[in-house]
Every structure is written in C-alpha cells, then in structure tokens.
Design a protein around this nucleic acid. Structure first.
Lengths: 229, 229
DNA sequence: ATTAATAAATATACAGTGTTTAGTTACAAG
DNA sequence: CTTGTAACTAAACACTGTATATTTATTAAT
C-alpha cells in the first residue's frame, strides 16, 4: 500500500501538516519541532511531508508566514476598532494589541521575532509580504500623524542611502508612506519588542497587578516623545 | 588505550572544551553546537566530555556564564573609564559599550539574550550571579542619579510584591541598591536590547554612516526622559 | 613493592533527528 | 486498456545527545 486510496487520504494534507506542526509547537515549543513527530501524528511517514514542503526550513517559513498573518490581522483589527480621527487612540490600540497577541501566542511570537529553530534563517523574500503587512498598521498611523503635522521628529536620524532599495520593496506590501514614518515606526517597534521579548522570556519582573503597568508607561513615553502638543 | 598517558592528555580539558565550543559557535553559530564536533576537534570521544559537564545544557550554561562575564567586564570597564562625578557620561559610556560588545560578539550576545539552543532554558540560579554583575554597572549609575536627586521617575510604575524575593537575590550579586533604580535600569535595558537585538538579527535598516545614529538618538531620548534639568 | 581504588578515557549501543533514494501503488488521461 | 504521473512507503545514511560497560593510567594504602 504505497499510496492510500482517496478515501483514506487526508483531504488537504498541506494544511494538516501545518496544523499538526502548530499543535506540537504549542505543546513542546518551537525548537522541538520534528518532521517525524508530525508524521507520526498524521500517521504518515516523514518523507511524505517532502511532497508538500521542500524541507524542514520551508515548513518553518510557511509557519512564520501564517504567524505573521495572524499577527497582522490582530494589528489591523486593533486600528480598525478605533475611529480614524483618533490617531493617538489608534496608536495605543495597536500597541496594546501587540502585547496582547504576544501573550496569547508566545510560541508564534518567538517563532517570528526570536531564533528558536536551530540554524534557521527566515528568507526575507518570502516573509516580507506578510511581515510588511503586519507592521503596516503602525506605519500607517505614524504616517497619518506626520501628514497632520503632529509627528515630533526633531533631529530624528536618517537611514542610509543603501537602504532605499529595501524601502521600495517594503512599499510594495506595506503601502505608500514616507520613509520617515517607516523608520519612526521601526524605532517604536524596537521599543515595544524590547519589553515584550524580555517579558515573554521571563526576564522582566512583574509590574502592576496584571503586569502591564510598565508597558502602559512606555506607551505614554512614546506618545510624549513623538506626538506634538 | 582507554585512558591516555599524562603526556598525551590535554592539560585543562575543561577549558579546552569551552574554547573549542566557542570556536564552533563563532564558525557555525550557536544552534549548530555539537558535542561530537567538539570531541572531533579535540580528538577525544564525545562521552569524554561528560567527565567535565553533566550534559550539553551544562556546557551551554558554562558558556553563557563566560559570556556574561565578558559582557560584564566590558560594562564595568566602560563605567570606570569615566570619572565618577560625570554620571551622565558614565551612562552613555555604558550604553555605547553595550552595543559595541554586541557587535563584537554577536554570537555571545545571542547566546545570552536570544534562545538559539533548541530546548535549552538557562537555569536562573547558576546564571544570576554573572548576569546581575553585568547589569550592575548600569544599575549603579542609575542609583547614583537617584541619590543625587536627578532621577526623573515621575509616575514610574512599581513592581509587584511577589518580585521582592527575586530582588533580594539580585542584591546579593548586583550590589545594594534601591528597587526603583533596578527597575528603571531594566526598562533602559529593554530599550537598548530592543534596538540591538533587531540590529544583530539584521531586521533594522542602517541608520547613519556607521549605523549608530539611531542608537545615539535613543540614548539621548533616555537621557531627556530620565535625567532631570 | 604490591594491591586496591579511583579517575579518565574508549567502545558500543540506543533512540532520535533531517534527508535521500528507490520502489510501489492509486488514480487520471489518452 | 495502457501509460504516465502523483503520492506515498520502505529502507538507508549520516548525523545528534546520552547511557552503560569496559579498559587503562595514575594515585593511595597497605
């Protein structure tokens, strides 16, 4: 029985593999992800997976893209939930959604922003679309702030010319914005990422009853620094 | 020949193993660290390593402690290089040393602050001494700032009571300071870590000629936010 | 000096991993 | 009814960390 009959075949095996992979990641963590374990779960043999993914890295890449999509959905939904006139409200909503998503899916967060898979390096070309989309919510808000003249960027550093090509590529998936807005958004991202990644890894003491006082403080700091008036 | 004669034995094999491990990490990255590869390099068998380290994780822990020590040395040296009256100068020196060290030893940086070893979780008890020491340079400067009344901590959030035990433990290795100074230092650490970790992973566009304009900007931001006057 | 104990290594083996190759079968198209 | 292809299995390779048993060099005790 080299090939199972259609009746016994798993209908969308590609999706089933990813689903089993997520299940294993949630249970044993991303580093323990194993093709053979997935195969056991689905009652197929490990090499069968190679019909759907070039190798383990390709599977991980697919998982990362899914995670980015989930993350981007959460970011865009947060922005949409606040009326577009209230730019500052959108900014905080996006920031809160960031941390909320990270706490809800710590494994997905680490899969995207950490380096939990041995030897794996995400191929930028494949990941960029979903990654740019996920950042686009924040970037668009900063852009709105800039267009309304409320963005305080006194002496904000400029990116080097060599990055221009990367920026053009970003715009393709992240939307038409000024380079300044993108770079400010990236700094904000870096700040938020700094706190959340340490928090997820358990390297920050708990602030406040629910632990988010420090985060709120940092969001206020961002507001005071980058929003005029 | 189960046991080599003293002449053929490697003199401090424990150190030699760590040295070979670092060599491999520098060459192939931390995730590719392999006991068997180390053994091959030293021309011994893999199980021989178990005479010096309980298991692979114990070796990694030893490496992390070494990395923390190297990092701490750099931090403390940076503080010492600036006269103790110039607290703000010490603060920036420490900040610059942080990034400099991270760029000089990206693998060590990722070994400490990332999670590049599959399934490995650093045992806090063993790592804390060197970790606390490495942070103590920054913490001590913040403490000086606080004692001289120049620390601006208007509405800075407080840590939860449950952390008090961890704080007591920290003081044992990181020096006698106020809890506030420690937590402010941790926020500063989070900010700096946010930028540097993204930078090391290649996820930030290059700012300025040598790429450190954004970092300088962020250090100025910290100063403006936390230093009075 | 002889013997016993210990320490430090090797040899071997086990269970696991990703991946390659060759073979087999179910199904679809001609 | 045949042929071709897609989708799988089986078996094997080269790795990995680790456990166990064994061997030997050195040290300590008698």
């Amino acid at each position: 029985m080299a090939r199972p009959t259609l009746k016994k075949q798993i209908p969308n095996l590609q999706e089933a593999i990813k689903k089993a992979a997520w299940k294993h990641i949630a249970k044993f963590g991303a580093p323990a992800l194993s093709l053979r374990a997935i195969a056991r779960e689905l009652k197929i043999t490990a090499p069968a997976i190679y019909n759907y993914f070039l190798d383990r890295d390709a599977l991980v890449t697919a998982l990362i893209i899914d995670a980015y999509t989930s993350f981007g959905d959460s970011q865009l939904a947060a922005r949409e939930a606040v009326p577009s006139q209230d730019v500052i409200g959108q900014m905080t909503a996006i920031g809160m959604a960031y941390r909320q998503w990270a706490h809800q899916y710590p494994q997905r967060y680490q899969l995207i922003f950490g380096t939990p898979i041995p030897g794996y390096q995400a191929p930028l070309r494949e990941v960029l679309p979903s990654a740019a989309r996920s950042l686009s919510a924040l970037v668009s808000v900063i852009e709105q702030l800039r267009l309304s003249g409320k963005l305080n960027v006194k002496s904000f550093p400029k990116v080097q010319a060599e990055y221009k090509a990367g920026f053009e590529m970003w715009k393709k998936y992240g939307g038409e914005v000024d380079l300044l807005s993108l770079t400010v958004a990236m700094l904000i991202w870096a700040r938020v990422h700094g706190i959340v990644s340490l928090e997820i890894a358990g390297n920050l003491p708990p602030f406040g009853a629910s632990g988010d006082d420090l985060y709120l403080y940092e969001m206020r700091s961002l507001q005071q620094q980058f929003v005029k008036e």
